[in-house]
Design a protein around this nucleic acid. Sequence first.
DNA 1: GTGTATGCAAAGCTTTTGCATAGGT
DNA 2: ACCTATGCAAAAGCTTTGCATACAC
Lengths: 128, 128
Amino acid sequence: MKRKTVQRDAIQGVFLKKNRPLKVDEILEIGRSMVESLNQATVYRNLKLLVESGWLRTIHHPYAGTLYERAEKAHHYHFHCRSCDRIFELPGCALDKRQSTPPGFLAEGHEVFLFGVCSSCRAVAAKR
Amino acid sequence: MKRKTVQRDAIQGVFLKKNRPLKVDEILEIGRSMVESLNQATVYRNLKLLVESGWLRTIHHPYAGTLYERAEKAHHYHFHCRSCDRIFELPGCALDKRQSTPPGFLAEGHEVFLFGVCSSCRAVAAKR
DNA sequence: GTGTATGCAAAGCTTTTGCATAGGT
DNA sequence: ACCTATGCAAAAGCTTTGCATACAC
């Protein structure tokens, strides 16, 4: 049976507080400000639990590695700015599933990552 | 200056021979059948060189990790079959870039991974 | 002959796991 | 009181790096 622990509460709290995709070391660091003893292994174990229970979802960032975000958010894409290195969440789903899936294939889900320069970085570049 | 070596020749040969996305351990194993002494570190160093020179491209598979494929191939998506675990290359690009990119953002590239069941696995499942 | 690329081994990361024990129920 | 979840430390991938030497030029 799944027990309620202050550690898992803290980990979930981190996501509620930050409301953006997070890396494991960020979760650990922020979580420790809530529960001092919080351990790396505990974070990994709870992330796995939370993904399995459907509370979290993993994102696979080509450069930054694995990120986690709340699963309740609607399906969306991610945009990585190569200038400021931030990750943005893009609303909507612009993939034509029928066109992208060959006959006979069943697509159950997809992950999209875009790369480029975000609007604020472009504005800065234009000024120079 | 970049010297020609039998090791890099072999690594490139592996891609020409297999003509599909490959993992590092596959490249090492197949490459060793061509150059017995081929070393892991050499593979990693040459993969980096070949990516930088534009001969190879990396794919970031959410489960299998990093894969490499020849860069000369046209832009395409990847499909991972959760039943047989194979990775398929899907022709074409069905993403509406304008729709998926917010105003002010410059999208320079994107990576798409689809998950589901491939046609042959579906056929097998249907028979049962 | 000169200097880069290789092989080998060690080290760095990220993630997982074994084990004793604290703590939720 | 029971037994799961935690903390700690070690281990297990994957990738990078330092160093002596082989070999491409």
